[in-house]
């Protein structure tokens, strides 16, 4: 049986008295694209930040290539996590650096290219996400939202990561630009043969970029299956969420 690229068991995380993750179990198979859906504040970002090491879980196992990164020595855990590329929700581009330095940042940090060759490499990667050379010297603040997302994607794929995370990749974009970004994501992931996890609220995007889907509800994965089956699922929680119904098992905490 194929070993999962990422295997998560019993992952728990609380902030103060609030339990966000309450025993998440999830297998991400190599070469697949998985989308994690769930309402706002259900812990989707905490889940991927836990895998990235940006949040320390209270309990559980996170295995990458069969090794538990939570128990591995720091240097080993860092090496295992170095194969992850991340596209942040708002791009998180470094506004003190020009576009090309943003794109080449990881390559320079890992000493994969010399500074003299970094710009040329960055321009090559920018071309892969449909951006011209004249963008390279601009500051991120000079770019539109869609272009910033492309630059962030270029930065994430520049070091050709084996695993890619996408945090709400289409948020804040118009539907056409959202579809363009999704196409780029699918294209990059296929070209690199990466394993990917995306978190999103956008059902159209979820269907475009993922093979598998999992729904996070009350701190656990309450449903998982093919992404194509999301909109036809008879699970009451998934059905309410994907169709955006106010009535159903998911109760929003509203103050009136």
């Amino acid at each position: 049986m194929t070993q999962p690229k990422i295997r998560i068991r019993g992952l728990k995380k609380s902030f103060g008295g609030k339990t966000v993750l309450d025993g998440v179990d999830l297998d991400i198979m190599p070469g697949t694209g998985t989308v994690v859906i769930g309402g706002s504040g259900t812990g989707k970002s905490v889940l991927i930040k836990s895998i990235l090491g940006l949040v320390t879980p209270d309990a559980g196992i996170i295995e990458i290539d069969g090794e538990d990164v939570l128990k591995a020595p720091r240097a080993r855990a860092k090496k295992l996590r170095a194969q992850i590329g991340m596209l942040f929700q708002n791009g998180a581009l470094f506004d003190s650096l020009p576009v090309w330095e943003n794109v080449a940042f990881g390559l320079l940090a890992e000493r994969k290219v010399r500074r003299s060759g970094a710009r040329a490499k960055a321009i090559t990667v920018l071309a892969q996400v449909g951006l011209a050379e004249n963008v390279a010297n601009l500051s991120p603040s000079e770019l539109s939202g869609g272009m910033q997302k492309r630059v962030a994607l270029a930065r994430a794929i520049a070091s050709e990561p084996a695993i890619m995370f996408f945090d709400e990749p289409t948020t804040g974009l118009d539907p056409i630009m959202g579809a363009v970004i999704d196409e780029l994501i699918v294209d990059c992931v296929r070209r690199l043969g990466s394993t990917s996890i995306a978190i999103t609220h956008d059902m159209a995007s979820a269907q475009r970029i993922a093979d598998q889907a999992a729904m996070l509800y009350e701190g656990r994965i309450c449903w998982s299956g093919p992404a194509a089956g999301l909109l036809t699922s008879t699970d009451a929680v998934v059905e309410q969420f994907t169709h955006g119904r106010a009535q159903g098992p998911i109760k929003m905490a509203l103050r009136r």
Binding site: L52, L54, I84
Partner: peptide
Amino acid sequence: AELGTMRVTDQIDALSTLST
């Protein structure tokens, strides 16, 4: 102010994901 802005816009987290 600079580091605070980097923190709230995820730039500090982004550094960590870029082996820095």
